[in-house]
Design a protein around this nucleic acid. Sequence first.
DNA 1: GTTTAGTTTAGAATCTTTCCAAGTTTGGAG
DNA 2: CTCCAAACTTGGAAAGATTCTAAACTAAAC
Lengths: 163, 163
Amino acid sequence: MASTNVSTSTAQNSSAAQREARFLDALQAAGLRLTAQRRAICHYLANTDSHPTAQQIYEDLKPQFPSLSLATVYNTLDVLVRLGLVYALGGAGDRAVHYETNTDPHINLACLVCHRVVDLPMPEVGAWESRVAEASGFKIFGARLVYYGICPECQRRSQDVSH
Amino acid sequence: MASTNVSTSTAQNSSAAQREARFLDALQAAGLRLTAQRRAICHYLANTDSHPTAQQIYEDLKPQFPSLSLATVYNTLDVLVRLGLVYALGGAGDRAVHYETNTDPHINLACLVCHRVVDLPMPEVGAWESRVAEASGFKIFGARLVYYGICPECQRRSQDVSH
DNA sequence: GTTTAGTTTAGAATCTTTCCAAGTTTGGAG
DNA sequence: CTCCAAACTTGGAAAGATTCTAAACTAAAC
């Protein structure tokens, strides 16, 4: 039950180790190769609750993996998204796509000032999905529920400064 | 197209003319100038239910407005977004930002096959917003609620073809 | 009319993401 | 264990989308 030491609280249903194993299993099950690069990226994603961009992943992994190419990061993220293990979130005020591994029902909150994205657990999101499917006739594969606004910290900060 | 698509059903609470007037009023109220370019873009946005990109707006307006610059389209959209009159939606499979003027509570449904985005009215979305604000402490400015799936038409079409 | 601050414009610059050709590695077959 | 073909990675070039810039223009106040 001892969880691995992750940098942020996980707030997710499965442990980082479980998620990492699930990623690797899914890659194999899909007939894809387990390369060192893919292992590193899966490890990285399984051990974070942030919503990194491809660039961030690349920069964080580069020191321990000097040969890594940005194209490989994109390729691997693409594979993981297609396998449904990772979600691609639209930009958070910046121009880049943010990726997340939390596939539990929840909402994303994007701060338009500091560009951070945080998760808000929302179990009833699952119920919304079936309502949407029924009302629209769509066969739903996934959802991206993002609210945009200003986080409490940035609200406080802007009370002091006027410009 | 050279003519405006006023005849399209709007599926929105206010008429195109009302929306256009509201846009122009808001620009003036904010102390901004009513230039010919801004009028044209407001007119365009008020009269469509699609979710155009800046490029699409630019191309549609160019024939009637040869001097129009893409930068101006971006500038004006930026202004309208900041005034809360238009929402900027993350990419719908492509890489571009899509803009929409339907600020009534609703959900976007994106078809992964034909890449169309349609609106699904959902009055209770407003209630979700206040729940989210309360639970998170965020000051919410907008939301992007997208469900991904396959639209009824494409489901029917794909019964013959395997992918 | 004049004035002037806000706007527009074209094109360059920037940034993210994709593409490509060539070299490298994985995992299975022998 | 070795070899092979397909899958993968890599760096750099290319493609787009968006932003920046500096000069020319114009809405609106006086």
